[in-house]
Write a protein that binds this DNA or RNA. Structure first.
Lengths: 92, 92
DNA sequence: CTCATAGTTAGACAGATGTCAAAATAAAGT
DNA sequence: ACTTTATTTTGACATCTGTCTAACTATGAG
């Protein structure tokens, strides 16, 4: 669980996941992501790998391009943990 | 936002927040926390400071003891971000 | 005032993390 | 086959993190 939160604990990765999850097609080509950040392509690749290893995104290659999509069930589980009465219900 | 996730990205801190948030009294004395972990007291102090600086917990001193409580509004906000349609709604 | 207890801060250190340039791999076009 | 484009891997490096012990601060008891 901590591993997933850790993956979200970097500004670039958090934004990457938002971009991937918000895309209308349900997936995003890496080529459309690299241009949006101030860091070089290998660094984006490094962060995508982190998100992958945390189980928050999935990827597959089609031709020369690689597409990433969110693993919504995993993201949802995080949200539930934070929303659980133990953690987030505002005191009555 | 990433700062809050980062704070949760360590197993000790995640467990600390759970313990603090789950306590029936709504707050926990540090003295009741240190014994529950395998690390020395200063390390717990270090992690509590992290949670504090991320705005996830609040603290105050009463006599010799220091009590921590969750900032549920902040935790809730994280949960909402993950639950927002962009991120976590399972595809229909 | 001194002492004991609870907690934090300071300093040191090994190991993890984020970044880049350069090299490697993958696939498609000529 | 060779080239070009897209992406990942590698190796190097500086910085950040988590941990400890030792020293410090704060409070209450005797």
């Amino acid at each position: 669980m901590a591993k997933m939160f850790k993956a979200l604990g970097d500004p670039i990765r958090l934004r990457l996941l938002s971009l991937i999850a918000a895309h209308p097609d349900g997936e995003v080509c890496v080529c459309d992501l690299t241009g949006l950040f101030d860091v070089a392509a290998p660094t984006i690749s490094y962060h995508l790998k982190h998100l992958r290893e945390a189980g928050l995104v999935d990827h597959d290659r089609r031709g020369t391009w690689v597409y990433y999509r969110p693993v919504r069930e995993r993201i949802h589980r995080l949200s539930l943990l934070l929303a659980s009465s133990d953690l987030a219900v505002p005191a009555p």
